[in-house]
Design a protein around this nucleic acid. Structure first.
Lengths: 119, 119
DNA sequence: CTGAATCCTGCCCGATACTG
DNA sequence: CAGTATCGGGCAGGATTCAG
């Protein structure tokens, strides 16, 4: 340890963000409104219950997401972004912008290739 | 497709960055100086040849990294960041800052817990 | 020195069924 | 409604060997 101990901290940050569904979960929670379990499920059509719970637990563990249980029947649980969690917002925003640009770039390149092929 | 097609683009960005060693590779190449294959290996003490080549190929594929072969014996290959690749710099920087803060936060919390336990 | 080719392994995630 | 429990597959990544 300690070798690159300071330089590698983006790996730490990535760990909090990476996971097949975490970025999407965060995206929705960062809208600000608390969401119930099944609301999140509906917003992420292809996620399984299992993965949703697992990822939420991990985010909760890092205090990025807050879980509030309303003791009632039927159960009601709300998930929301913590204040600390909002500090991820600029990261996601930057990633999103870069992603959009990257896709456009690829698209342009593809079109260019197709044009030169038909010459 | 197209469901969240615009919102999910951070996933695209993450794909370019994620991979066990990609962030480290990028970190070193973003220093600006072109690096030879074995120089990178030395900088990433625990990476295997296989993973280094694979990750470099992926980065090259996305035009984030440029590969220059000097036809000579023994072979010499230099990797450097492309101009396009430098656009990742702010992302890595933001991630790094957040990572550092996140680790510190965890550390503080741990110390606090240890203190209350010994009460 | 810079790889490519195989083989192997862990573990992330998915599918499904069950519960308070 | 909001979860657990269990089983299994796929794929990223590691170890090793060969090659120009």
């Amino acid at each position: 340890m300690r070798k690159n101990s300071d330089q590698c901290q983006f790996v730490v940050a990535l760990d909090s963000i990476v996971g097949k569904w975490k970025p999407l979960i965060l995206y929705h929670l960062l809208q600000g409104k608390p969401l119930r379990f099944n609301e999140l499920r509906r917003l992420l059509p292809d996620i399984t219950q299992r993965m949703l719970t697992l990822h939420l637990r991990e985010l909760e563990e890092e205090e990025i997401v807050k879980r509030v249980v309303y003791p009632q029947i039927p159960p009601k649980v709300e998930y929301s972004i913590t204040e600390y969690g909002t500090s991820l917002s600029p990261i996601l925003e930057t990633l999103h912008q870069w992603g959009v640009a990257h896709v456009e770039r690829k698209q342009l390149k593809k079109e260019k290739n197709e044009r030169t092929e038909t010459d």
